[in-house]
Design a protein around this nucleic acid. Structure first.
Length: 934
DNA sequence: GTACTCACG
DNA sequence: GACGTACGTGAGTACG
């Protein structure tokens, strides 16, 4: 039926339904897997009741449920703070959103949304169209923002109170008719949507003014005539802000839609489809009611076999580990049977076996799969024949009884690349990179290591052996039993296939069992959002960065290395001369004996092994007494640069790519930071002039340039936000020199012409605060007496009492809950926080630092995850991350464009989940090498 | 394998 | 009142 006169359109505000349902119901979870489902349950109940209620003579001929989509709309372009004070969506609600769309379709009601538009705009557009076509409209919502639409055949219905809202009710609420509602809203503003309005003016006053002057523009034009002086001034001062507010509250009746009213015709639900959905959700009561109504038998919902468990003790009976029960897949037909099983199941645990630990060079040897606890197989693909010997004279013929590698991969490809089949692994970045080299783009993936990290960060490590022991009470077969260790170690392709099967299939089995336990526990630990937004999407980003690698110039390193060696030899001779004997300069023990035992210099301390300790700060103090310690310090610096950087880096240049491919550990740091290894590219020297030159060896490929963009003072900014320090926030907003500002606040000196020494001290305090400051630590850092340092700290806290409160609040929270949190909900467990003894201080400072360092880490993770899309059309590649810095390789000529795009992503990375009170500022540099770019 | 030292944010 | 401390990492070398 074409929409027209006599037709009646119902428009349901879907998002309002969801939030009502979410808040109205306790946190229900689906029995079988613990998925939070309360909002979906409430939503379905509301839809069901709505359908029941809306039958009869006034029944709608057309209906649709309208949803919001995307958190950024055109209103954010008008006013960037629009809805900025909204809390982030609760993490247990997030996974339910797509299910509410599915529910709507299951009820056979049209389900509409549009990226970049609010549901209100779509509702407005449809209501206008229906009105023009001569039909009637009922908007099922009580949202006051929709009241401007009322009139001319458009009504609202508050489904909860079952109350109709017509022109009269709108006038009651706003004191004006629907056509002037936006004028009143523009003046009164709205704290919920963060519409500014005119300060000090509420709905009452606004209505008064509009009724007096007729409309908003007339009012603003004639504001000078208002009698009350304060009110008059407010309107004159804030005219522009009021006009912006008006644009924010006005709904868009011209939303471009790719459907028409005719598409929204009411249809009866198909009982089969609806019941299928409801049983999948395990809604028992609703399933029965729907079945009764349709006159069919209610489908059975299996009683939950596996009550979701928190601890191993609650786990359902698990089959024991039986290594001999695993299948070794040697025929393509057997493999096809496993593939069919995986398809039916929808997920699979998977593990790859390779010839080494380096995923850039190791070759695939076999793949193991698991579909249920105790049910796993191993597919050997590249095992070498037995008895062929090893080492130099190894026999490289392949072992018999293996499916040809390419045939196996071709068979697996449709499963591994199927977006509907979840691939579960432990440290999947490794497996994904290996399979990538064989042309497989494995997705989507879930990772037990990251699940553990999101839940248990700070409690223990997240290696498979550790997790298996802790959560499955099972010690896996050690890899050493198969490949040995040390010099006689062999590669996995030389392990006999039966043994390899026991080991490899067990790994997949363990991974699957861990996943079955961790997945539902994630919701209960309230870290689903952390896992889904900060962990899982980062895997492919890191994988691509690692595979890109960075170009390192071997000749530059080699030349530097030679220069360092020469200088060191000279220093070594001088040191021996000064010492009067030759000894190993690199041995702190021998050096300590010379300095403290033989020469009798003061200040020596012994470590726990009884050997002398000779760290740099002690040698610096001694340098005033004798020439030798200074020479040793110079030697040490060169030795470090040579061994760790100029020499070791060369060995990491990949012969195939000519580039250096680091590996990022996503679970490397408890705070959420990444760690880099093999080689560590997050500690390349920069602080000393000599060390910084190492960065000259990190170069852009011909025709390209390196870009470096880093967050300025991100941790201090976060501290200012979290602790709510207004002075600091203002200083950051005004772009002041924050350390000079601190010094000025503390010591009462002018920022202009400040003694650099004073600023340096303030800077040390600012850093100390982030670390959980102590008099001792600050004293040592600044080399001042402890009492003086304590005096600084006291004065600092006096000036910034909010910081002391933050520290006290954070430790109290940690003591009560056993964890602390970042602004994005990342949890850092603090098991030692209630310990007694020296560990207590450590744990306390770590707890103070973790939310700050962790929030910064979350922010750059968010930036990295969004970066790929942001620069997809630009000739740029993201190569490295160094905690607050990202390095890119860019085609010459595109630098400015890329910087603009990257900066926008980085500076806005906290949005929309968190709205910081301080701006994030990103500095950028360009160069032929990293030294120039930084 | 552990301790020490030092490179980075 | 004493004690021991800056937060988070990875890597190379010496040494038992």
């Amino acid at each position: 039926m074409n929409f027209g006169k006599g037709c009646h359109l119902h428009l349901i505000d879907g998002s309002a339904f969801i939030f009502r349902a979410y808040h109205a119901l306790p946190p229900l979870t689906r029995k079988s897997d613990g998925l939070p489902i309360g909002a979906v349950a409430g939503f379905c109940n509301m839809l069901f009741r709505y359908i029941e209620d809306s039958s009869g003579p006034d029944a709608p001929t057309h209906a649709a449920v309208i949803f919001d989509k995307g958190s950024m709309t055109f209103r954010n372009e008008i006013y960037d703070l629009y809805k900025a004070n909204r809390d982030a969506m609760p993490e247990e609600l997030r996974p339910q959103i797509p299910l509410t769309r599915e529910a709507t379709r299951a009820f056979n009601i049209a389900c509409e949304e549009k990226e970049g538009y609010e549901a209100d705009d779509i509702i407005a557009t449809l209501a206008c169209q229906a009105r023009e076509a001569g039909g009637r409209v009922t908007i099922i919502s009580s949202d006051k923002d929709l009241m401007q639409l009322v009139g001319g055949g458009v009504e609202m219905l508050d489904a909860m109170k079952n109350k109709r809202i017509g022109t009269e009710e709108v006038e009651q609420k706003f004191g004006v008719g629907p056509d002037r509602v936006t004028d009143v809203q523009a003046l009164a503003g709205d704290s919920v949507d963060n519409v500014p309005g005119a300060p000090g003016i509420g709905i009452k006053t606004a209505a008064l003014l509009i009724n007096e002057f007729g409309d908003l523009e007339t009012l603003l034009a004639r504001a000078g005539e208002i009698k009350q002086p304060k009110r008059r001034q407010t309107l004159i001062d804030h005219a522009e802000q009021i006009r912006v507010s008006k644009r924010l509250v006005e709904l868009d009746c011209d939303t471009p839609l790719d459907f028409t009213l005719d598409d929204l015709e009411v249809k009866d639900p198909d009982p089969t489809v609806l019941l299928d959905f409801l049983t999948r959700m395990e809604f028992r009561t609703l399933t029965r009611r729907v079945a009764d109504q349709a006159g069919v038998e209610a489908p059975a919902i299996p009683e939950a076999a596996a009550p979701a468990a928190d601890a191993a003790t609650d786990l359902p009976e698990q089959p024991p580990f039986a290594p001999d029960s695993y299948t070794c897949v040697t025929e393509i037909e057997t493999l096809e049977a496993w593939i069919a099983e995986i398809r039916a199941l929808g997920h699979v645990a998977l593990d790859t076996e390779t010839t080494g630990l380096n995923d850039m060079t190791a070759d695939l040897v076999g793949i193991s799969l698991a579909t249920a606890p105790g049910r796993a197989c191993y597919i050997p693909l590249a095992h070498k024949a037995e008895g062929g010997g090893d080492g130099l004279f190894a026999d490289d013929t392949v072992a018999p009884g293996q499916i040809p590698l390419q045939a196996a991969l071709d068979a697996l490809r449709p499963v591994l690349e199927d977006p509907a089949i979840l691939k579960i692994g432990q440290n999947m970045k490794y497996d994904a990179k290996i399979l990538h080299r064989y042309g497989l783009r494995i997705a989507p993936i879930d990772d037990t290591m990251l699940l553990s990290y999101a839940m248990h960060g700070g409690l223990h490590g997240h290696g498979m052996d550790q997790l298996s022991e802790r959560y499955l009470s099972h010690n896996p077969i050690p890899i050493k039993e198969l490949i040995g260790s040390g010099k006689s170690q062999i590669t996995f392709d030389r392990v006999p296939i039966p043994e390899a099967t026991r080991y490899a299939a067990e790994d997949a089995d363990i991974t699957l069992r861990l996943w079955e336990q961790f997945r539902p526990a994630l919701h209960r630990a309230r870290v689903t959002t952390v896992y889904e937004t900060l962990e899982r999407p980062l895997i492919p980003v890191l994988a691509r960065m690692e595979m890109s690698g960075v170009l390192v110039d071997r000749d530059t390193l080699s030349r530097m290395s030679n220069a360092f060696a020469q200088k060191m030899a000279g220093l070594e001779a001088e040191i021996h001369e000064l010492a009067g004997e030759t000894f190993n300069v690199g041995s702190p023990k021998q050096l300590g004996e010379i300095l403290f035992d033989r020469m009798g210099l003061p200040g020596g301390k012994k470590g726990k092994t009884g050997a002398w300790s000779t760290p740099a700060d002690v040698l610096e103090d001694l340098a005033t007494e004798h020439d030798l310690p200074g020479r040793v310090l110079d030697w040490r610096q060169l030795s470090k640069l040579k061994s760790t950087y100029t020499d070791a880096l060369q060995t990491h240049i990949n012969p195939d790519t000519g580039r250096v491919h680091t590996s990022y550990q996503q679970t490397g740091a408890n705070t959420g930071r990444l760690a880099s290894s093999d080689p560590n590219l997050q500690n390349i020297p920069v602080r000393s002039e000599e060390g910084r030159r190492i960065r000259e060896a990190f170069v852009a490929a011909p025709g390209k340039r390196l870009l470096s963009l880093d967050y300025s003072q991100i941790e201090l900014r976060i501290l200012a936000h979290i602790a709510g320090i207004d002075t600091l926030k203002t200083a950051f907003r005004e772009g002041l020199d924050i350390h000079a500002m601190t010094a000025s606040e503390m010591f009462g000196v002018e920022i202009e012409g400040m003694d650099p020494m004073i600023r340096r001290q303030a800077k040390a305090i600012n850093f100390g605060v982030i670390y959980g400051i102590s008099g001792f630590g600050l004293a040592r850092n600044l080399r001042i007496p402890r009492a003086e340092a304590q005096g600084f700290i006291d004065r600092y806290f006096e000036r910034f009492p909010g910081i002391r409160e933050y520290m006290a609040d954070t430790t109290a929270f940690a003591k009560e809950h056993g964890y602390v949190q970042t602004l994005f909900g990342r949890r850092i467990n603090t098991p030692e926080i209630n310990a007694k003894g020296p560990g207590a201080g450590f744990a306390k400072r770590a707890a103070i630092n973790a939310p700050i360092q962790g929030t910064a880490a979350d922010i750059i993770r968010r930036a990295m995850i969004r970066m790929e899309d942001a620069i997809a059309d630009l000739p740029a590649t993201m190569l490295l991350q160094v905690h607050d810095e990202l390095i890119f390789e860019v085609d010459e000529g595109a630098e400015d464009q890329v910087i603009a795009a990257v900066r926008e992503v980085m500076e806005g990375a906290a949005h929309p989940a968190v709205h910081l009170d301080v701006p994030l500022v990103v500095d950028a540099g360009i160069g032929a090498n990293w030294a120039e770019a930084h």
